[in-house]
Design a protein around this nucleic acid. Structure first.
Length: 297
DNA sequence: GCCGGTCAAGGTCTT
DNA sequence: AAGACCTTGACCGGC
């Protein structure tokens, strides 16, 4: 089991998200941003290794506008050796990597241009992981998408589009249950039609489920991951008190996390902590997990 | 300098 | 039909 947090680190004082406005696009600006982001990513990974946080989600903003038609830089080539060095570091320290494109990636949109742009965005994410020369245990996670007034049709569109994707994307793509539209059961249905591994989100499952306990749902979810996909990934969070349903807590709820670790002790999986204060909670969580689990962490 | 409206991209839900 | 909200930090223009 490995444990980590997404995208940014608030302790070390750099941002791996540096971007700029589309209106002020120029390639020198792009180069400058990517340089900054790669350097900061390296610093974050070094911090993480020092604290044994061996799971990390790389920000989608690593290469700004990478999937936009304005982008005229062959960035994988331009930064080839930088990516290789970083990838080397990741492999050397056995760090697990994920990425999570945001809400605009919709494989089941009825609008062809939306689906097209989504695939371009997935290709960008795959290129990052390829440039790092990571194996297929490095994953890209997305949601199933919208309903568009007809859920069966929307599900079929997802399946159809998924089945036509290039291997370069498919070998890394995993599907996450969301908190309003597509439950873990819905994702399992998609898995049966496609073979796409399912990444389980604990808070989303609390918001939207079919009454399954962790005990019944987790074995089904974990069975969707093949050896080449690596150990299953799980997104962990808990409900922010007195807030909209589905909102992530600001800082780790230790009692809730402790219970989660106790309930899942028999499984091996990697945990991504989706908690607002990032590495601060991750450090608390790893202390709890190390105390409660017998397997090396 | 600092503040706050705005930012490539799409949905759902409420009024 | 139009607007709020999701979710988020940081850009960047206006002061």
């Amino acid at each position: 089991m490995k444990l980590g947090y997404p995208c940014i680190n608030n302790t070390i004082g750099c941002t791996p998200n540096k971007t700029f406005r589309l209106a002020s696009y120029c390639s020198s600006r792009l180069v400058e941003s990517i340089k900054n982001n790669l350097l900061c990513l390296q610093k974050i990974l070094e911090y993480n290794v020092a604290y044994n946080l061996l799971f990390f989600r790389i920000s989608s903003d690593l290469v700004p506008f990478a999937s936009h038609k304005i982008c005229d830089l062959d960035w994988p080539r331009f930064f080839k050796s930088r990516f290789q060095e970083l990838g080397q570091y990741i492999k050397q320290h056995n760090i697990r990597i994920s990425m999570h494109p945001d809400q605009f990636v919709l494989l089941n949109s009825p609008q062809a241009h939306v689906t097209h742009n989504s695939i371009q965005e997935l290709l960008y994410h795959a290129r990052v992981l390829d440039a790092l020369e990571l194996d297929t245990t490095a994953k890209i996670q997305i949601h199933a998408g919208g309903i568009y007034g007809n859920k069966p049709a929307a599900l079929e569109r997802f399946i159809h589009t998924y089945n036509q994707l290039d291997t370069q994307i498919k070998q890394r793509l995993v599907l996450e249950n969301d908190d309003r539209l597509y439950s873990a059961q819905d994702c399992l249905y998609i898995y049966q039609q496609t073979g796409i591994p399912i990444i389980f989100d604990t808070l989303h499952h609390e918001c939207l489920n079919n009454g399954e306990s962790l005990e019944t749902i987790l074995p089904q979810i974990f069975a969707t991951w093949k050896t080449s996909d690596g150990v299953p990934m799980v997104d962990y969070s808990s409900q922010a008190p007195e807030s909209r349903k589905g909102k992530h807590v600001a800082t780790l709820n230790k009692a809730h996390f402790t219970q989660f670790i106790e309930q899942t002790r028999k499984y091996n999986f990697d945990i991504m902590l989706e908690i607002k204060d990032k590495e601060k909670s991750a450090l608390q969580a790893i202390a709890i997990a190390q105390r409660l689990r017998s397997t090396a962490l």
